[in-house]
Amino acid sequence: MPVFWTWPSAILAGGSAAAAIGMINSIGNLAGFVSPSIIGWMKDVTQSTNAGMYCVSAAMALGAVLALLQPRKLVNG
């Protein structure tokens, strides 16, 4: 996880890096607020928490894939 927070400053400079870090933090906070609602809504629809957990885990897996697809030249440049 600490490596994730170094990406904006490795790719961007100055105020852009600060804005990117702020955006990452904002999206993380939004996800922490929305995820329980998604799980609850999916539980109401399907009568099981499994579907909600699969939905949230799919979003996490998508984020991991996007992080792994980051070009090495761009980060280490």
Score class of each variant (00 low, 15 high):
1 M>R: 12
1 M>D: 12
1 M>L: 09
1 M>A: 13
2 P>E: 14
3 V>F: 12
4 F>R: 09
4 F>K: 05
4 F>P: 01
6 T>E: 11
7 W>D: 04
7 W>M: 10
8 P>H: 06
8 P>R: 02
10 A>P: 00
10 A>G: 01
10 A>N: 08
11 I>F: 04
11 I>D: 01
11 I>A: 05
11 I>E: 05
12 L>G: 03
12 L>S: 06
12 L>Y: 15
12 L>E: 11
13 A>Q: 12
14 G>Y: 10
14 G>L: 13
15 G>H: 10
15 G>Q: 14
15 G>S: 15
16 S>D: 13
17 A>D: 10
17 A>Q: 03
17 A>C: 07
18 A>Q: 13
20 A>R: 04
20 A>I: 07
22 G>H: 05
22 G>S: 08
23 M>P: 00
23 M>I: 08
24 I>Q: 07
25 N>C: 02
25 N>F: 03
25 N>D: 01
25 N>E: 01
25 N>Y: 00
28 G>N: 14
28 G>Y: 14
28 G>Q: 12
29 N>A: 14
30 L>C: 05
30 L>I: 12
32 G>F: 00
32 G>Q: 08
32 G>M: 07
33 F>E: 01
34 V>D: 06
34 V>R: 05
35 S>Q: 08
35 S>L: 00
35 S>E: 11
35 S>N: 14
36 P>R: 10
36 P>L: 14
36 P>G: 06
37 S>K: 13
37 S>E: 15
38 I>P: 00
38 I>A: 04
39 I>Q: 04
39 I>R: 00
39 I>S: 05
40 G>P: 00
40 G>I: 09
40 G>N: 14
41 W>M: 07
41 W>T: 11
42 M>W: 03
42 M>Y: 02
42 M>N: 02
43 K>L: 05
44 D>E: 15
45 V>Q: 13
48 S>M: 07
48 S>Q: 09
49 T>N: 11
50 N>I: 13
50 N>V: 15
51 A>Q: 03
52 G>C: 05
53 M>D: 05
53 M>H: 10
53 M>E: 06
54 Y>R: 09
55 C>A: 13
55 C>R: 02
56 V>P: 01
56 V>Y: 06
56 V>D: 05
56 V>S: 08
57 S>P: 03
57 S>F: 13
57 S>C: 09
58 A>M: 11
58 A>Q: 07
58 A>P: 03
58 A>W: 09
59 A>L: 12
59 A>Q: 01
59 A>Y: 05
59 A>V: 15
60 M>S: 09
60 M>K: 03
60 M>H: 02
60 M>G: 04
61 A>G: 02
61 A>N: 00
62 L>P: 03
62 L>T: 08
62 L>Y: 07
63 G>T: 09
63 G>V: 08
64 A>Q: 14
64 A>G: 11
64 A>D: 08
65 V>F: 13
65 V>C: 10
65 V>S: 02
65 V>N: 05
66 L>W: 04
66 L>R: 04
67 A>N: 04
67 A>H: 02
67 A>Y: 10
68 L>V: 10
70 Q>C: 13
71 P>T: 08
71 P>K: 03
72 R>A: 08
72 R>N: 10
72 R>V: 15
72 R>T: 13
72 R>L: 10
72 R>C: 04
72 R>W: 13
75 V>Y: 11
76 N>T: 13
76 N>F: 14
76 N>H: 06
77 G>I: 03
77 G>V: 06
77 G>E: 00
